[in-house]
């Protein structure tokens, strides 16, 4: 992502954001409210308009492409809210995740259940009746059905109890261990940076700091303004 400007409607939210995700990496985007974190991620997925700059996926510019085409390039997105089909069962949610697949849906579902053993007992239940943490698992599982190269997570732990938060972060690492690169936006900056390979701190739509997770946590300037001291 190189020097991206853009936003929604007429107003730009991003004023030059650059970032990079290597294969097999977990990268966290943190920053205060309104810094453009979610917008930056949505720009990658074609949900926010890019007015300047490029978004390269293995060298091909995917800026302003339709989301369904980006999905076919191997990038999946898990929105922060309304990220499951509430009246469909867990199993059916995964079926929809693998909708574009010709075959092998069953095997991949087994793979997802192996990653999220909590869901096995709930596979016939409507996703809308699950707890917040379990819903997040369904949402991630649905995205993983296509075996993406890059998984985009928009605030996966928002509104979850600390117990679930730790579990979700552990899952992010597990997912990453299967070879999927992860880019996530997080409010819980300290925990996110702790598990991330690298991180970016955004402020007012621009890059402010970047580095490995550990570097950023150790950086006093970052700690003071973004990690709550």
């Amino acid at each position: 992502m190189e020097d991206v400007h853009g936003g929604y409607g007429e107003a730009d939210v991003l004023h030059g954001v650059s970032m990079r995700v290597e294969a097999h990496e977990v990268v966290a985007i943190v920053g205060s409210n309104g810094a453009g974190k979610s917008t930056a991620m949505k720009a990658v997925f074609g949900l926010a308009r890019v007015s300047r700059g490029r978004i390269l996926l293995d060298g091909a510019d995917i800026a302003n492409r339709q989301p369904d085409r980006i999905v076919r390039e191997g990038v999946c997105f898990v929105p922060q809210t309304e990220n499951v089909f509430p009246t469909l069962s867990v199993d059916e949610n995964l079926d929809i995740g693998g909708f574009t697949l010709k075959e092998g849906v069953r095997e991949r579902k087994d793979g997802v259940y192996a990653l999220f053993p909590d869901l096995v007992a709930k596979r016939r239940q409507a996703a809308g009746q699950l707890s917040g943490g379990q819903r997040q698992m369904v949402a991630m599982g649905r995205a993983l059905m296509l075996r993406p190269r890059l998984l985009l997570l928009d605030e996966p732990t928002a509104g979850l109890s600390p117990l679930y938060m730790d579990q979700i972060f552990k899952i992010v690492r597990d997912v990453n261990a299967t070879g999927v690169a992860v880019l996530m936006v997080e409010q819980n900056a300290r925990q996110a940076l702790a598990i991330a390979d690298r991180g970016y701190v955004l402020a007012t739509g621009r890059n402010r700091h970047e580095g490995t997770g550990a570097e950023l946590i150790a950086d006093p300037a970052v700690a003071e303004s973004f990690l709550g001291g």
Partner: peptide, 14 residues
């Protein structure tokens, strides 16, 4: 049913 539930997410699922 998925589309009736959440049209945006259905589109994002291809």
């Amino acid at each position: 049913r998925a589309m009736a539930d959440n049209p945006t997410l259905a589109r994002l699922s291809g």
